[in-house]
């Protein structure tokens, strides 16, 4: 079964076609890779799925529902969340608050409830607190919960961003270059984390990455993008031996 389906997805910025007519399916419970040279339109696809950009043509279908051009916060409610290439945490807030804010969708008390400190407010706040703490525990961040997010080491900032995404209890997690700027050791750890998280939270993961070790190591399916168009699709083995992919990455032998 496919959790996400892109059909004829196109994004034009003026005369430039950043993403052109891409068809793509992501299987439920898989880890799928999205690779391609710089400027191929990978992040643009993420922005189109999450509603940050408006789609020019084509459709985004999630769990058989058309979610094209929904607002980002609606996409989050539907069950898709993401991380960013350049980490976007709530920098001046604590680790705990970062996760807590993402847990908010599980509470429903109104402004009046909170102003009057109604029982509903107290009950749900307690619930949120528990959820946030539990998640920090799972992600191994509880000993740093009071730290300001910006003061975390880089690797942990990535981890916090993933934790924040998981707080939304998504079905589909989009990771945009999670290993960017990491050394091989940290990349290895990240790979284990992604695999672990997927099992624990029963997620489907779509991942953009340039570290080929990581992509080839954990992805079951890979799509290659070049100049906004789909170049190839298949298992890691197929992709590694696809002449078109080798050409796009390394050029043609003179």
């Amino acid at each position: 079964m496919n959790i996400l389906e892109l059909s004829g997805l196109t994004k034009k910025f003026g005369g430039l076609t950043a993403v052109g007519n891409v068809d793509f399916k992501v299987k439920k419970d898989s880890i799928t890779g999205l690779i391609g040279p710089n400027g191929a339109g990978k992040t643009t696809i993420f922005n189109l799925i999450t509603g940050v950009y408006k789609v020019s043509e084509g459709k985004v279908i999630f769990c058989n529902k058309n979610i094209t051009n929904k607002e980002p916060y609606q996409i989050a409610e539907i069950g898709i969340t993401r991380t960013f290439q350049n980490i976007r945490l709530f920098k001046r807030l604590s680790v705990y608050e970062n996760v807590l804010i993402a847990c908010h969708k599980n509470a429903s008390y109104s402004i009046l409830d909170s102003i009057l400190m109604m029982p509903k407010y107290k009950r749900e706040e307690k619930q949120l607190k528990l959820q946030a703490n539990e998640l920090l525990e799972i992600m191994g961040l509880s000993d740093r919960r009071e730290l300001i997010a910006n003061n975390l080491p880089y690797g942990l900032q990535r981890r916090l961003e993933i934790a924040r995404a998981l707080a939304l209890k998504p079905q589909l997690l989009l990771l945009d270059e999670p290993a960017a700027g990491m050394n091989p050791d940290e990349t290895e750890q990240l790979m284990l984390l992604i695999d672990d998280v997927r099992k624990k939270f029963q997620l489907t993961v779509l991942i953009i990455e340039h570290h080929m070790d990581l992509v080839m190591g954990i992805c079951e399916e890979i799509m290659v993008l070049n100049f906004g168009c789909k170049l190839a699709e298949g298992t890691p083995y197929d992709i590694q031996n696809n002449p078109k992919v080798i050409e796009a990455y390394l050029g043609v032998e003179g």
Binding site: V52, Y73, T81, R88, F90, K91, L93, I101, A165
Partner: peptide, 14 residues
């Protein structure tokens, strides 16, 4: 407060 800190990220967390 989240909106003040990082508008895009706050949209993404719903």
């Amino acid at each position: 407060i989240a909106i003040r800190e990082e508008e895009l990220a706050s949209q993404i967390v719903g």
